[in-house]
């Protein structure tokens, strides 16, 4: 995806100098290997800052809510689905946006690369389908496909669903992926085992809220965590509070989550927080055939209904 950088810069330069947009939101190269930083450019001469590689796992839709400018935005498949969400939820107007579409081949999980390398990544060079990383004890080459983020491995919407200009031809979508395999495994457990599983999964949480804040869906002016009258949950490391937080955070994403993986990518403790949102996504898909953010013409799963929706669980 390295060749995308030039094209992104070219498009950004064009739309900025033509006055089509006031700013372009994209990525710039990070200060450490395998990192990118979301950034914006307002000047056609400054587009050289923009770059794109397989380390752009942040979701840029997170940076456009309630903005008044005309914005050019670099969007992978998942980002574009979150842009659709924002349009539906009136967080931005379609006319404000010039969407620079990225046909995405998946983002690399830097934690996985770090774990495979067994230490700090000192240097990383990305090639067309491989990654050469240098660590303290030498060099290693990995295939990009093997090092993808979990969500990217099973992604079926790699091409943007809403776009003004693509940086390259569409990529082939993955078929027959099995994204909910691990959810099904958990479902097979007994209630006690499930409790133990989630206690274990969530106990390293430090309540930094990176998962919430990295998520473009989380934009409430006051999050339930910060509400004090009534106070829905405590602020300590008590596991019940931690679980309550994660339950409600996930639930607030139901019918809206696009599996972009920004939450997991952001977690400093490496918690697989998508174990919760995935269950909701699976239920949305299996119960109502719903996948979030595919079209601006349909209301999200919890903002619509059918007269004959399943209700076996209701007496």
């Amino acid at each position: 995806m390295l060749e995308y950088t030039n094209k992104i810069q070219e498009i950004a330069k064009k739309i900025l100098s033509e006055g089509k947009v006031d700013m372009v939101i994209g990525f710039r190269k990070g200060t450490i290997p395998m990192m990118s930083e979301p950034c914006f450019v307002t000047d056609a001469d400054g587009v050289g800052e923009l770059s794109f590689d397989s380390n752009c796992g942040s979701n840029l839709a997170n940076y456009i809510m309630d903005r008044k400018e005309k914005i050019g935005i670099v969007a992978k498949g998942c980002d574009s689905r979150n842009i659709v969400n924002h349009i539906i939820e009136n967080k931005i107007k379609r006319e404000q946006l010039y969407i620079i579409g990225i046909p995405c081949r998946g983002m690399v999980d830097r934690h996985a690369v770090g774990a495979a390398l067994g230490g700090e990544i000192l240097e990383a060079v990305e090639n067309a389908d491989s990654l050469v990383v240098k660590g303290v004890d030498g060099e290693a080459t990995y295939s990009l496909v093997d090092m993808l983020q979990d969500n990217c491995k099973t992604c079926t919407h790699r091409n943007p669903v809403i776009v003004d200009e693509m940086v390259a031809d569409k990529v082939e979508e993955q078929q027959d992926t099995n994204p909910y395999e691990d959810v099904k495994k958990i479902e097979a457990l007994s209630p006690e085992e499930k409790t133990a599983y989630f206690d274990e999964l969530l106990s390293p949480c430090i309540r930094c809220y990176a998962c919430r804040n990295a998520c473009p869906l989380c934009y409430c002016p006051t999050c339930f965590v910060d509400e004090s009258r009534p106070q829905w949950l405590g602020k300590s490391q008590d596991i019940t509070d931690v679980k309550t937080f994660h339950f409600l955070r996930a639930y607030h994403c139901s019918g809206r989550c696009t599996e972009c993986g920004a939450c997991e990518n952001a977690c400093p403790m490496g918690i697989k927080v998508r174990q919760l949102t995935k269950k909701l996504n699976m239920d949305c898909l299996e119960t109502w055939g719903w996948e979030a953010g595919l079209t601006v013409d349909a209301r999200p799963a919890l903002d619509q209904y059918n007269l004959n929706d399943p209700e076996e669980f209701i007496k």
Partner: peptide, 15 residues
């Protein structure tokens, strides 16, 4: 400009 990317999580302060 420097704060643009910041998502205001508590990671930096907690670590």
């Amino acid at each position: 400009k420097e704060a643009f990317a910041c998502i205001n999580c508590g990671t930096c302060t907690f670590v």
